[in-house]
Write a protein that binds this DNA or RNA. Sequence first.
DNA 1: CACCAGGCAAGTA
DNA 2: TACTTGCATGGT
Length: 221
Amino acid sequence: MCIYERLFEHFGPQNWWPAKTEFEVIVGAILTQNTAWANVERALDNLSAKKMMSPVRLRKARCSELARLIRPAGYYNIKAARLKEFLEFLFKRYRGDLRRMFSTRTETLRDELLRVKGIGEETADSILLYAARRPVFVVDAYTRRVLLRHKLISDRSTYHQIQSIFMENLPKSIGLYNEYHALIVKLGKTYCTKRPKCDSCPIRSCFSGGGCARGLRLVRT
DNA sequence: CACCAGGCAAGTA
DNA sequence: TACTTGCATGGT
């Protein structure tokens, strides 16, 4: 029994970003930076209600108007500017066409996204996985916390090092990366909190050998 | 009331 | 390079 199977058995499918447009996924990825998803959804609803959920419409909107609409997501001034930064990139580089953007190879697109002010590694990888549908594993604060708690990484491990643990031990599957990341977030929220509920942690028995890297059986071999 | 949430960039030394 | 700080709403 590998960790992924155990998590999926315990929590079930997380259904992240289901049936959304690619553009909405990207907007959500930026708005959810250090922010609870429930608040992001209100902001997304506001944009949709105003028929603003398109590259053309968002680009036309004034920054102050945009900030007002995304207010529930917090950091609204910063995030309005970040959305604008992405849209300027999208129009200057790809004529505002996501299809064109998604025709770029994964490594190149990742580098381009990282050059956009307001898009860091996690946001870039979220866009690549959930919008562009590339097999890129997303590392976030929960991933770090869960692995650190199980002593599978050190507190000095870099984003890339943590990402490599998954990508070098898992098949390059979009569906698997999608669900696995979401399940780790769910695990972190539920069991890897400040007062951890280690006794009932669903992957507790996966680390019976005591936390070495070999204990991280990410999938059945 | 305090603390946290699906980060990131700018400032400081 | 390595730390620290600002950004901000809404839920627990």
